[in-house]
């Protein structure tokens, strides 16, 4: 299916919010793929980080909102460290999560975790998850 594009679709409220929440200019990205080349979690993602940015540039925000990529970003900032344009993707991923959480509620239920996990996993991981994956 063709993606219908117009000035309106390119400047949607969602795109504007993502730029505002993340503080990043999406059009700074020139799609070199450096982020995707180095991302240690990309193998598990359904969409490469660079591809996610491309969808956002084109106003195809839903693609990214429905992707698991933002949820598999561990904010390790390998991408940011090497991005030739200094784009902090971890901030953009955080903005996407924020929007999805606001619209759709929690991404995970920490209550689902086994008692063994709860006892063993360092609480800093729970706190981080709580902050990143719940509304």
């Amino acid at each position: 299916m063709r993606a219908r594009m117009s000035a309106e679709t390119l400047t949607s409220e969602l795109t504007r919010r993502i730029e505002e929440i993340s503080g990043e200019n999406l059009l700074k990205c020139y799609q070199c793929g450096m982020c995707a080349a180095g991302c240690p979690a990309a193998f598990a993602m359904d969409m490469l980080p660079s591809q996610a940015i491309r969808f956002l540039q084109l106003g195809l925000v839903e693609e990214v909102l429905n992707s698991d990529t933002p949820w598999l970003c561990a904010a390790c900032q390998t991408c940011y460290a090497r991005c030739p344009k200094g784009l902090d993707l971890s901030r953009i991923m955080e903005a996407i999560r924020e929007i999805v959480l606001q619209e759709r509620g929690d991404y995970i239920d920490l209550g689902d975790l086994s008692p063994r996990d709860l006892a063993e996993i360092p609480q800093q991981a729970f706190i981080a998850c709580f902050r990143k994956y719940t509304a």
């Binding site: 793929g33 450096m34 995707a36 080349a37 180095g38 991302c39 990309a42 490469l48 660079s50």
Partner: peptide, 12 residues
């Protein structure tokens, strides 16, 4: 060499 091919969307 860890790279990417964004045309096939594969880490290489």
């Amino acid at each position: 060499v860890w790279g990417v091919d964004t045309l096939s969307d594969r880490q290489v």
